[in-house]
């Protein structure tokens, strides 16, 4: 085989080699719990919206995740990264308040070699009061970076202001 064939073949296959490409991390993400608002009905459950919603971690009254929000269809909130198994949140609609306690387990997972690690959570149990909330159902206990609804919060009919179309 002529020498030129060797060189051409080598150049052809060289880009196929499994070099580790150094990618770029476009941003550090945090896994968040996604919770939709629903109202039970005789037929299929209907999603609903809430007005004047305030939501924050019980140990962080200085930093509100939602501050008097209107037309809110869902909540999206983070969980602590440490191995502590429970965390409390204050859920306030108008003058009514419910304390939601989330019992969870957490695990470090590598998102990518460029961006590093992220904490994934598994929702074990949710304990709540019933001033605003009728019931909570865990639809997907795994909280990660995928945009999937984790819990359904069924609102008491007396509190639900409007029903989404």
């Amino acid at each position: 085989m002529r020498r030129i064939h060797f060189i051409l073949l080598f150049l052809l296959v060289l880009p196929l080699h499994s070099c580790q490409e150094e990618g770029i991390c476009t941003g550090v993400e945090v896994a968040r719990v996604k919770a939709g608002f629903y109202v039970r009905s005789d037929g299929p459950d209907r999603d609903t919206i809430l007005n004047n919603v305030t939501f924050y971690g019980s140990l962080r009254p200085d930093s509100l995740i939602y501050d008097s929000a209107f037309n809110l269809r869902e909540l999206s909130f983070p969980l602590p990264n440490d191995e502590k198994i429970d965390v409390e949140f204050n859920f306030k609609v108008d003058s009514l308040t419910d304390i939601i306690t989330v019992y969870k387990s957490s695990k470090l997972v590598m998102e990518s070699f460029e961006c590093g690690f992220v904490t994934h959570h598994n929702l074990n149990v949710l304990v709540y009061q019933n001033n605003i909330i009728d019931t909570i159902v865990v639809s997907d206990p795994l909280v990660n970076l995928i945009d999937v609804e984790n819990i359904k919060i069924y609102i008491s009919p007396a509190v639900a202001v409007d029903t989404a179309q």
């Binding site: 550090v28 945090v30 971690g57 962080r60 930093s63 995740i65 983070p78 969980l79 602590p80 990264n81 965390v87 470090l108 590093g116 690690f117 992220v118 904490t119």
Partner: peptide, 8 residues
Amino acid sequence: IVIPDDYF
């Protein structure tokens, strides 16, 4: 391993 968090 460092995991930043702007809330907790």
